[in-house]
């Protein structure tokens, strides 16, 4: 499938700020499931640093703007060819050992509710394969947290989302990572895009899911929000320990804070 992406992130400042610095993870890396045809990342007026690849295989780039400004816009515009690999991340070049993804952050730390969820999901599955266990955990998370935009916010932890009893893709992913760790399975947060226009689900095009490491298969994606594995509708941008660590944009405003943020993502499948 060929997908066109137009992703705009616009920051507006109430009073002009001294500048901005951002670390961008906005370029999809090549793997069997995706090959970039054309991809541009622009931040008007900013100095763009050299693109380098980190140990997790993500493309990273710095954008810095050191002049007074009252708004800034990050524009991603690209075309990518995707294919269904049944969720398995194949042909992705990376250097981080999977066991490094066993640690929790405050966002993925389990509480009692999460421990119980994982225990119930895996009850009687002691002999099951890691892949079956991962599937069971993903379905359990899907069942435990109905999709409800607004129930949580950008800094909600897995434990808080469980207490809330609802959440969005970020919360599903955090809870699933916590559950996987409890089952001694390395797990990480993946940020990317989802072409959701076809199945009519109400999710945003900016999306997140978890990857769980399964011996013999490698990293396998699990989208607990949709109770599915990533297919040709998914574009993978990068990974990390949690939403903050894997964020497509991590930035800092210099000499000012007040901002309004407007994000639009349009994804279209190209007609063959």
């Amino acid at each position: 499938m060929i997908l066109n992406v137009l992703h705009k992130t616009r920051y507006e400042f109430a009073t002009p700020v001294g500048g901005i610095i951002q670390s961008l993870r906005l370029i999809p890396a090549r793997c069997e499931g995706q090959t970039v045809i054309d991809w541009r990342v622009e931040v008007a007026g900013a100095v763009m640093g050299e693109v380098f690849r980190d140990g997790a295989g993500d493309y990273i780039q710095t954008a810095s703007l050191r002049t007074r400004t009252s708004n800034i816009e990050v524009i991603v515009n690209g075309t990518i060819e995707t294919r269904d690999c049944a969720g398995v991340l194949r042909g992705h070049r990376e250097r981080v050992p999977p066991r490094a993804y066993m640690r929790n952050t405050p966002r993925t730390a389990p509480n009692r509710a999460i421990r119980e969820l994982a225990e119930q999901a895996l009850a009687g599955m002691e002999a099951a394969s890691a892949l079956e266990q991962a599937h069971a955990l993903a379905s359990a998370v899907h069942g435990a947290l109905p999709y409800l935009p607004g129930a949580t916010h950008a800094h909600t932890t897995a434990a808080e989302a469980m207490n809330e009893g609802a959440g969005v893709c970020q919360d599903h992913t955090h809870v699933l990572i916590a559950c996987a760790h409890l089952a001694d399975l390395p797990a990480r947060y993946v940020s990317g895009y989802l072409n959701a226009s076809e199945d009519g689900t109400p999710h945003e095009a900016s999306h997140a899911w978890a990857e769980i490491f399964v011996d013999g298969l490698g990293w396998v994606g699990f989208d607990a929000s949709n109770e599915s594995c990533p297919n040709e509708h998914y574009i993978r941008l990068g990974s990390g320990l949690d939403a903050q660590d894997a964020a497509p944009i991590r930035g800092l405003v210099l000499g000012g804070t007040e901002e309004s943020l407007d994000v639009t993502v349009v994804i279209e499948a190209q007609q063959q």
Binding site: D54, G55, A56, E94, R95, V96, P97, R99, A100, Y101, M102, R103, L241
Partner: peptide, 24 residues
């Protein structure tokens, strides 16, 4: 670690192991 001289988890699960510089 591959040679089995140090347990993987002691290194990779250590808080001081920085994923951000793996491979660098």
């Amino acid at each position: 670690i591959r040679a089995g001289r140090i347990p993987a988890d002691l290194v990779y699960r250590n808080e001081a192991f920085e994923i951000a510089v793996a491979g660098f």
